[in-house]
Amino acid sequence: MPKKVLVVDDEQVIRKFLRIHLINWGYEVKEAMDGVEALEQLSSDNFDFLLLDILMPKKDGWRVLEEMRSNPKTKNIPVIVLTAKDEDSYMLRGYNLGANYYMTKPFTNTKAQLLYGIQLMFGKNSESLRKLEEKIG
């Protein structure tokens, strides 16, 4: 059974290219366009990991992450944070709230960056991680 991913971003175009990559890699992809919708899907479905934007209407990514980590059903789901906020303080906040990897917009070499984050979360071999690190720079 393919791994199921929830892509949460209020920008349709961002969801679109992430979905294309993930589907090409064999994942099943669901989408949410704001934090409220993401939490609804998390409560009614099971996901293997999340790609989560931070600045979104209705409920931002920080609150989604907080609520996920305090809910027994979702507290262990790996999360890759996607955001244009690239200051250290934001990344620290993300990791403190339980993010597993942090991708900053504008993504360069999206595919390699995303693969790196996924492999990091699921503990793939260090050689392929090293190759991806070289690609990301």
């Binding site: 290219f17 992430l18 244009a84 917009k105 504008p106 993504f107 070499n109």
Partner: peptide
């Protein structure tokens, strides 16, 4: 921030 978002869209879709 508002520029970075569509810029991500351009880079991401061009890669695809």
């Amino acid at each position: 921030h508002e520029i970075k978002v569509p810029l991500s869209g351009i880079i991401g879709m061009a890669e695809v």
